[in-house]
Design a protein around this nucleic acid. Structure first.
Lengths: 378, 378
DNA sequence: TGCACTTTGGCAACAGCGTTGCTTAAGTGG
DNA sequence: CCACTTAAGCAACGCTGTTGCCAAAGTGCA
């Protein structure tokens, strides 16, 4: 059950268990999972799992798909998620382009559209373009909702943008509500780095990790204990302006010795190794402070010199591990996912709550979201 | 309900709601709280709250205590927690002394004992002394469990100590199990900074804060979104060895420019203002990265020059807020709680789960903890 | 081929949760 | 004194996961 301040009743109990089972089905993927395995993993009795899966099958969100080999008795029946039982839209609003994706319940990409878009154009133009792209992908399908990833800062709870660097005209604009009104769908807004981290969290097995994004700026998405850390005012992840060199070179933020400034200066000089070392020092600080399992790198600058950045960051973390007497350093890798990773992560803002992850942001999809509320079953 | 991977059944539902109500009763303190207010706060129906509070009253953990003024009808009956319905022991194992406290359900200090203790003495001596101090405080009362706060690093899940700086002989010692076997009570082990932070979390209203402890070393306890962050290997909060001055003075850890080294060197020179500024830079990094609401300072060194440290850290944070255009800087204060704060926080390791906070650590008190399982009600 | 055994999974009855509908208790105000 | 308001409990209820039992569907040996 979610750590919350609200009481739970029978429907909440039911949703919780259904979401848990759905999540295990999702994680199992094409391999599927048997009822008894579900019972072991959830701690529920086999009979309870039978009832829950029967409901899910009746709703169309799960299905039987073959059997396992017998171990001396009746063979186990394999259950799988039916990915087409629900879809979500993910929008990545970047400074110069808009990427829209349609994904199914399993998170599989069903459709993509990318169009150039000047974030400096008027509110109506941007909202209109975003809505058009979303609608063209939907194609009449029932949609759970729309997740939007935007450069920060912004307020995830209210869905309002703040002062985006270089685009002050968006300050205070209620993007979530504007888009929700235009599309008639639930919309959730979050920072691009958070969306990327969320996509990675649902993809991989790492319980705690940091996604470091180095593009025109430097930011981080933090997943701690399986949960995305947004902070009190959706401000968490401001990694670029961590001071690592007191009295160092001036940064655009007004301070000195910020990681971002040091990295970008090195990159501008063409010295990737130096940039990677600065990034590594920041990563080492993160690893120590938060005790994370993994560091993932992304962003256009990193993608332009993947090996150099991974090697440089890894070297700093290995040095740190040696000092601490740890057998193994925290692994470093380039974030998987390709060019639509952020948009796909944005879609996960919608899919997450269906599987019991997070709270669906400011806009609760339902209260609580239960599988029987999937629109397709309406 | 707790974000977990385990299914929930009716007893779990009942425990969850009972814990929620108990927590509201605890928070209300001497002022008490009415049934209808409980219903509003939990989202449960008034009738459900009536049933739950009736059970709690029957068990002895809650009681009626007067009525509020009428607002035109029957006046509300005020309910309060019965603090004496349960007690917990908190032990603070420090390098040179042991503090043991006995607290009641409300967290109120009932008894304290402090004895000198050399952590360098043998395992049996230390465990024996700890057990003796605990037993002398218990005095036949039914006890929920014993929380132990120790210098890190250690593993909170297994209850095993790691390589404590200066006391390598404890490496790998299963302190939790040793003490549990000796006392016949559930024991939970955690780092001293975590215990301190947990005590502060249950005391104040701040949802997210950092407790920075500057004594012989520098560490942090992080509470994010109401939950103590322990990290994957109970390693979170290693704040002292954050690099803030690349290529700076050498630190005992083998790196250069660690906050701890910079702070302690300044303190050694008697330059509290400089130490506070270094601490402030680290705090500013934290505030940006985690978007916390509050910074609290503690530890012997801080307590020796409270004003200097608070002013210095505050100045850095205010400068940071000005740069970011924020109206208000994150507030800084000395952590309240007095000399037994850590031991009291350790006791909260046991009390927390009763009120639905956290998971009770490696040793689950019960599975799940429900109020009817309080030993006193046996 | 037949029978014993193992394992899976559903049916039916059940205890217990919060909810609903209604009644009783205990005040205020004209 | 009576109408009204508000609080809180009783009883019946729907629905949850659980328990006890049984049918289905395999394996393996005689």
């Amino acid at each position: 059950m979610n750590r919350s301040n609200s009481g739970a009743n029978l429907p909440a109990l039911r949703s919780h268990n259904a979401a848990l089972v759905l999540d295990l089905l999702r994680t199992a993927g094409d391999a599927g999972i048997s009822r008894l395995e579900l019972a072991e993993r959830t701690g529920l009795t086999p009979q309870a799992v039978s009832k829950i899966t029967a409901r899910l099958r009746a709703e169309g969100t799960a299905t039987e798909a073959g059997r396992r080999a017998s171990t001396g008795g009746k063979p186990r029946t394999v259950l799988k998620l039916v990915p087409s039982a629900g879809h979500a839209i993910g929008l990545h609003l970047d400074r110069d382009e808009l990427t829209a994706v349609l994904v199914d319940l399993a998170g599989t990409l069903v459709g993509v559209r990318t169009v150039p878009l000047d974030l400096g154009a008027g509110h109506d133009t941007v909202v209109g373009t975003a809505a058009e792209q979303a609608e063209s992908l939907i194609g009449g399908r029932p949609i759970l909702g729309v997740g939007v990833a935007s450069p920060g800062p912004l307020d995830h709870h209210t869905g309002v943008l703040h002062r985006i660097t270089g685009f002050p005209q968006w300050n205070g604009f209620p993007l979530r509500d504007a888009l929700a009104a235009r599309l008639g769908l639930p919309v959730v807004l979050d920072k691009d780095t958070n969306a990327a981290a969320l996509g990675l969290a649902l993809r991989g097995p790492a319980d705690s990790f940091a996604y470091l994004h180095l593009g025109t700026g430097l930011g981080a998405g933090l997943v701690l204990g399986g949960t995305l850390l947004r902070g009190s005012r959706t401000g968490a992840g401001e990694f670029g302006h961590q001071t690592i060199l007191l009295g160092g070179p001036a940064c655009g933020c007004g301070a000195r010795g910020c990681i971002e400034a040091l990295c970008l200066m090195s990159v501008a000089r063409g010295d990737i190794a130096a940039a990677a070392r600065f990034l590594g020092v920041g990563a080492a600080n993160l690893v120590g402070l938060l005790d994370i399992d993994r560091v993932l790198l992304g962003g256009r600058t990193v993608m332009g010199a993947q090996d150099g950045f991974v090697r440089g960051v890894r070297a700093v973390l290995e040095e740190r591990a040696r000092r601490g007497g740890d057998a193994r350093a925290v692994p470093v890798a380039v974030a998987p996912g390709g060019p639509h990773a952020v948009a796909e992560g944005a879609a996960r803002l919608i899919l997450g709550p269906v599987f019991g992850h997070g709270d669906g942001g400011g806009t609760r999809l339902q209260a609580p979201v239960r599988s029987s509320d999937l629109p397709i079953l309406g």
